[in-house]
Design a protein around this nucleic acid. Structure first.
Lengths: 198, 198
DNA sequence: CCACAATATGAGACTTAGTCCAGAATGAGA
DNA sequence: TCTCATTCTGGACTAAGTCTCATATTGTGG
């Protein structure tokens, strides 16, 4: 990860542009809907050329998905990475989400918004699913050293990561539909998972 | 589900058209790559008008994803549905995949092909992820009656379904990269995580 | 501080995806 | 067979996504 500040100007600038485009995409799509927002609008809002937009994102929907889900999912992965190294995988996951519980309210709006947007745009739903898979992969890497007796090419880190993301998806879905306490929902989902020895 | 044959001509025709388009999309994309295949080609090959194509699928990639992954994932869900009703969820999953082991070889080519195609097309990867989520949802429905003490809005059916699909994804990935016995890989993945009662 | 190599951006042309609509065709039911 | 509801078609239209080349910006060795 290493977001250290001494990373060279080019790299920092690149990251900033990436974030700026994603943010513009998320904001405009939230205000007008995905279908009514054009790439030109997003590019103009982020102060880049149209061609530059496509250097950073594969599609309009990709940018929106990253802009809405990205910040939140980044918090999750960072929280996992932050857990003390001696915690085994599942405990690290639980601890990370517990730690994030207070930050939920701040993101609740955006999360709800994404649900609304994906309802109206299958393309956005697809790219959101893809975004989730990317974070799932990142989480899997973080979990590898936390599986004590991990053999070579053990599937369990990836499966745990997949179930962590599934817990988020399922709980989010339930929360959007019937309200309730989102952190508690996620906690319950996570709690029902357990790793078996090989 | 109900694929009974007495469904009315219109319904059967519609299903046939859907399958024909998906198959054409999969074949052409496999031969030429997704990027070099146009919707016009697919529509022409499937003998429908361009406008009709978009009545059946949201995007070119959606059709390809369904055409390549669909038949195989349909086998999976049907195998699960076919298990005797008294089997609890996890056992039903294991039994279904065991039952499918002999059919793997027949689909191995297509599965490998999809992996190659998604490598070269992020858009296809996104729509494939979405397709997996759809099947995951279908599987979750099938598992609900197989969870003995399921409470209202219990997350476990969905989590189990997510485990099933994640097992497939992860094992597929491993198999594409390092060969091995795919059914055995899936079996191991399924066995390495369990969903506990609340 | 300067020059040069490497890489990021900008601009605009071009192909093709995806939407929309009015009219033809087709199946369900009387 | 006739009518109604739905689905398919063909074509026009907007915008997504690709490509190329010129220009600007950053990192690096002198």
């Amino acid at each position: 990860m290493s977001h250290s500040e001494a990373d060279g100007l080019a790299v920092r600038k690149r990251r900033a542009t990436y974030a700026r485009i994603a943010a513009s995409a998320a904001r405009l799509a939230g205000e007008q809907g995905v279908g009514n927002t054009t790439v030109d609008q997003i590019a103009q809002d982020a102060e880049v050329a149209r061609a530059t937009f496509f250097r950073y994102f594969d599609s309009k929907e990709s940018a929106v998905a990253e802009g809405v889900a990205g910040p939140w999912l980044t918090l999750v992965t960072e929280a996992i990475a932050r857990q003390p190294g001696h915690l085994p995988a599942k405990e690290a996951l639980v601890a990370a989400f517990t730690e994030l519980a207070d930050q939920f309210p701040a993101h609740a709006g955006q999360i709800r918004e994404l649900a609304g947007l994906t309802r109206g745009s299958p393309a956005l739903a697809a790219w959101t699913a893809r975004a989730y898979q990317r974070y799932e992969h990142a989480i899997a890497e973080l979990l590898v050293p936390r599986i004590p007796d991990a053999t070579e090419r053990d599937p369990r880190p990836h499966l745990l990561a997949a179930l962590a993301m599934a817990s988020v998806r399922v709980s989010l879905d339930e929360w959007v539909r019937h309200e309730g306490d989102l952190p508690a929902l996620i906690h319950r989902a996570l709690g029902s998972i357990s790793i078996e020895p090989v």
